[in-house]
Nucleic acid binder design. Structure first.
Lengths: 233, 233
DNA sequence: CGACATGTTGAGATGGATCAACACTTGTGG
DNA sequence: CCACAAGTGTTGATCCATCTCAACATGTCG
């Protein structure tokens, strides 16, 4: 995975330290919880394979998906720092994780400032994605939101080299989309259907294909900027 | 300011380094731009006094306020890392800033890992706030959103020791509230008015007083967790 | 076979948007 | 000093995007 263009190279020393830092590999079955919203486990993870998502819920069950997690994403930082403002993480597909001990983060900063810098990078990058989602939820119409979600996820997955044949794995259902976009399930369905009938995308057998990316970009008022290599722990 | 309970103490060495790191003090007049959405300046700041906010806009002018910035908040991290996903920062009141050079961040991590750790902390904490705003925008009703905003800002300001007499300075207008909550200006006005008539808050002469915090908490489905001391650069 | 998750569709209800005034304050230039 | 524009808050009337409710279809799995 480190060989992918998407990721910044690390030095052998850094790699050594990362290997030592990890407390083991983890596995999460599709649908299982990686971090519980009520009882955060304080652990840190790197997602190696599979999809997951971060979410928060209100006491009456309304759920908001904060962002989707793809391979390379670092999980659990906010637990360490955000005072109490807790969130859950759930696997969407079977996922493999690299597990780091809860208290090792400071060691990492101390011994390898460069890796600490990388952690900050990952954190700021994730915040950038949440920012974008907030703009989407607050100010885009239902149609724009759906277009946005499709483009954004497609682009991220493609950047990881996981697009085959112009389509990507898309293991989320309409309820997930609704919860990510702040829409009702029914309206999400109707909006998705409209875009499909306009010939903008195709979504079947758990795979997504963008048939008219330009139109989707125009719809969403979203123009992508160049992606940069991202550090990988 | 460092003497405040709200902030984590630093060692003399750290303080020395911070002093050396800064490239000067800055001042931003109320309403002026600190970081332009179109032309980010790459600088980093710590807000020392005053209020500001981060925002993003769509090409047709719709604006979303991402979060409000209060004294102690660190500004500009995402510019370094978030690929292109840009945002603007604007001062709400006259503000004083500590300015750090754009390229000094890596030095900070290298020479004082503990300060690097603090930067990450601040970043993760801010992300936690954006998370909460995203939940609010996506899943709370207009009334709940307004209640949430009032509680949350009151609490943050109070924690900084800036509440006097049970009220706080509140230098934002209804347009700001609307843009932060993803609502229209008119509806924001009506909602605010309703809460006022219910005797839940008082908002005049640029000061906010919560008259019935419990009812507001219940309304917003928001229960606060203990605040922790936060690092200050 | 039934139970369950998921997607689909229509009808009707409503929260919030939009449009249009108007009031009040502040600052500005003549 | 007044006249006026600009920013802000307020309110009513109307509209519509989205929600809610209610069915029904399909596929999977025990």
């Amino acid at each position: 995975m480190r060989a992918l263009d998407a990721f910044k190279p690390v030095t052998p020393q850094e790699l050594d330290f990362i290997q030592g830092f990890r407390s083991g590999a983890g596995f999460a079955a599709a649908g299982s919880s990686i971090i519980s919203e009520q009882n955060p486990n304080g652990k840190l993870f790197t997602l190696y394979a599979g999809w997951a998502f971060r979410y928060k819920t209100l006491s009456d069950g309304r759920r908001q998906i904060l962002n989707f997690l793809l391979p390379g994403d670092f999980i659990g930082l906010q637990q360490e720092f955000a005072n109490g403002a807790s969130h859950g993480v759930e696997a969407l597909t079977d996922a493999t994780l690299c597990v780091f001990p809860r208290d090792g983060l400071w060691d990492l900063f101390r011994h390898f400032p460069s890796l600490g810098y990388d952690v900050t990078w990952l954190s700021a990058r994730e915040e950038g994605m949440v920012d974008e989602n907030l703009l989407t939820n607050g100010r885009r119409s239902a149609t724009e939101r759906v277009a946005m979600l499709l483009i954004h996820l497609y682009r991220r997955v493609k950047w990881l080299g996981l697009a085959t044949d112009g389509s990507i794995e898309f293991p989320i259902n309409q309820q997930h989309i609704a919860d990510a976009l702040g829409l009702s399930l029914v309206h999400t369905n109707k909006t998705l259907r409209r875009l499909k009938q306009l010939g903008l995308h195709e979504l079947q057998d758990g795979r997504l294909r963008l048939l008219n990316p330009k139109a989707l970009h125009r719809l969403a008022d979203y123009y992508d900027l160049p992606m940069r290599q991202v550090p990988l722990l």
